[in-house]
Amino acid sequence: MTVEAQTAGRGTVRRLAGALHRRPRLRLGLLLTAPLLWLAVLYLGSLAVLFVSAFWTTNSFTSEVVKVWSTDNFHELFTTPVYRQVILRSVGVALAVSLLCAVIAFPLAFYTARVARPKWRPLLVVAILTPLWASYLVKVYAWRLILSEGGLADWMLKPFGLSGPGYGLPATVLTLTYLWLPYMVLPIHTALEQLPANLLDASADLGARGWRTFRSVVLPMVLPSVAAGSIFTFSLSLGDYITVQIVGGKTQLIGNLVYSNIELNLPMAATLATVPVAVIVLYLLAMRRTGALSSL
């Protein structure tokens, strides 16, 4: 009896499996429904809500959201000098962090991918990734200690007659560079590791010295990966508002403006939040031209 039930059950499963096998579209549909729902409703949906609410206004006495279509927020965004300053500053910080990350990551990745002995390479990559496993807040507070008055930075620079940068914009750039560096090292490391050795041989064979080979062969082939890494460093920096609160002194970035508006003026917060989204879309379009998106 039980045996029969089992075979019957198995038969149903088999028939179902067979039916699915003959209908590849149905199979694909069942497989993708849940993730597609997640993407469409939760992710794109919330973006849409954000964008729509950016056109609403707030009752200035009660702070209640008034769902009336208006472009006042955008008008305010474009005409208030402070907003413009903060936006430019935020983009500047994101660009500076990306540039610093690239400058530091390239030699580092060159070492881990091509100079270090092959058996040490995986270990070195793990070492570079290890900070990603530590809490973000712990790392930022560590930097707060390093940069504090009489802290590690001051102590190390003292013999040269210098002092640390203290809290402020430079400290923010420095800390963000530290935070996002692994996201830049990893793609460059991969690109350098995959660079065929015989291309370097061929370049030398055709008469090129080391520097020429680097400029004409290595750099152009690795540049898309630098751009890919910068997509991470740029967007992560642009969205950050905690680091700047901890080590930035009085410095304000877009994230801080969004954060401070959420309670009192949600539509204005939404308007401000569309700025980084728009900037990142523009950045992605620019990076696409370098071939970065295909080397992600």
Binding site: N198, L199, A202, S203, A204, D205, L206, A208, V217, M221
Partner: peptide, 20 residues
């Protein structure tokens, strides 16, 4: 001498053309 100091050129087995 280094490869770039020799008056010989090589055709590689897998061609080694610069893809970019």
């Amino acid at each position: 001498l280094a490869p770039f100091e020799r008056d010989v050129h090589t055709v590689f087995q897998d061609y080694a053309l610069f893809p970019h």
